[in-house]
Amino acid sequence: MAAVREVPPDNDVHDEVLAATQRRRAQKVQIAAFFLFVALVPLAVHNRYYLHILIVVGLNLILATGLNLLMGYAGQVSLGHAAFYGIGAYVSGILTATYGCNPWAALLAALAVTSLVAWLVGKPTLRLRGHYLAMATLGVGIIVVVVIRQTTGLTGGAAGLTEIPSMTLFGRELQSNMDMHYFYFVWAWVCLLTVLFANLVESRPGRALRALHDSELAAQTLGVDTAAFKVRALVISAAYASIAGTLYAHSSMRFLSPTPFGFHTSIALLVMVVLGGQGTLWGPALGAVTITAIQEALRPYADYDIVVYGLLLVVMMIVMPGGLSRALGALYGRLRERVARHRAGDVAR
């Protein structure tokens, strides 16, 4: 497992003026600790079912992180994010299963196709102010599923696409019946994409995104090309979904059907981001874990989980609009304060 080692502190003195530097260092430690913990999980968990669930959590985390960039930073909503996930999965699946392509080449091809679709959707709609992107992605979400179902010759239609080969790593096949290997593979991707995300949002483009989320007008007057940045955020967000799709296609099922890429999943992803806390580093992780757990718990009741999502959204908006991660952060702060006050009280006595 490629856990992040803590990067030596910047010796760039100028960076010291930035309050952000401290936050970044704290984030690096958090990321390292989190992935170290994840790396140790398979030592305790041998059950294949649980490992499989944890792989799903990883995929959802990648999806939610990508969507978080779009929602929490660029301030735009995608109601069809599962479509990008599906395009990534199907392009990978078709290229490897039908055309015998190398899985890594297929991954890149899927990235290219997904990014292109996202760009085509975003370019015209993001020039407009308001939530036109939400409408457009809703449409794309529906169209993609219909296309997958109808182009039977290519995608296998509703019957599904079968016999997708395993992922390879350094020329060796990642045996899909060895879930532990694939667990590490997926979580290495999660780690890489999380680090990329953390770096992106703390850099100049990240500041530009947060600025335009805050006040689009002010961002424009400072020279931020806001329309271009929103399109870029959408494309990156879709690229994250595409990678998750490729990883899904080569996971232990090695089988694709249109069902997981429908509206249902798009909503689940949206709830993950809102529940966890948009615009935070750890929100998507919290959301992905919670929602995946709910999905598994409600599996016997099939599609009724969407009722739970609806309720969750409503309750979240009322109780903790900032999401779980902010609520937990506030709780931690209050506890620490109380402990400090308690100690001070002891001393006084």
């Binding site: 003026v17 930035l18 309050a19 500041r207 947060r210 600025a211 805050d214 006040s215 002010a218 400072l222």
Partner: peptide
């Protein structure tokens, strides 16, 4: 129209 959710230093960097 300062960016209320960002720090003073980040606002200046955006400038």
């Amino acid at each position: 129209q300062v960016f209320g959710d960002l720090t003073v230093a980040d606002n200046l960097l955006l400038g």
